[in-house]
Amino acid sequence: MLRRTFLTTVTALALATPALAADPLRIGVEGAYPPFSFKESDGTLAGFDIEIATALCAQMQRDCELVEQEWDGMIPALKAQKFDAIVASMSITEERKRQIDFSEKYYQTPARLVARTDAGFEGTPEGLSGKRIGVQRGATHQCYAEKMFPDAEIVLYGTQEEVFRDLVLGRIDAQLSDSLIAQESFLSKDDGAEFAFLGGDHLDVECYGEGVGIAVRQGEEELRDALSAAIAAIREDGTYAKINDKYFAFDIYGGRPASN
């Protein structure tokens, strides 16, 4: 297994508590989920998750070691103490919370509606009343669309690709999906030229969960809270924005933290 050590600045180590400074913090990462986590041609890890992990370590003034782990073994490896935290775009869900604990979210790509640029209606429950909204079946968006737009006709598709295809053909008036996916695989392409986001972000704990957080073992409240505080700090000082802008055209942090 490839291991890579990132040494953070040593200058302020004296400020850290002795317990925290003792061992390097081992962070499980995936390395196969671009643009969040991937390998450069020379084998070094790169991506949004990787840079966020590094920035958090710098913020917490801890030595960090990134440990590569395949996705399906991520939680067992955390529980088996192979590493102490997971920074791998893991969504905070109730089911996982039974196994592990999560920091506050560090990003949450919100759902957004997409419609024709000249749609002539608003992305509100009233504006979409009687309109046809396409969503992928079984996705969190089906839950949200039916809850949020009860007067619209929710049209279900097997794949997100089919949703975009029928949006182009005009069989649906709007579609609801992950904003990042909509941007990367539709709006930035030729097919999406006459389309745009309609209205703002849609966030909903019941349907969408609480965003993507950093996983730690249960009972490690100290580490969890330190990570949450570090996330807030890099949001504050602009480090997050700098990393974000390297990869994405808009702020993927989403709205306020879901726990507020």
Binding site: G134, G138, V155, L156, Y157, D166
Partner: peptide, 20 residues
């Protein structure tokens, strides 16, 4: 049901998708 119609299977798949 694969082309968005809510026939018997379409409703079945809707139910599965809506409540996981």
């Amino acid at each position: 049901s694969t082309i968005t119609l809510q026939d018997i299977l379409g409703v079945g798949r809707w139910l599965n998708g809506r409540y996981y």
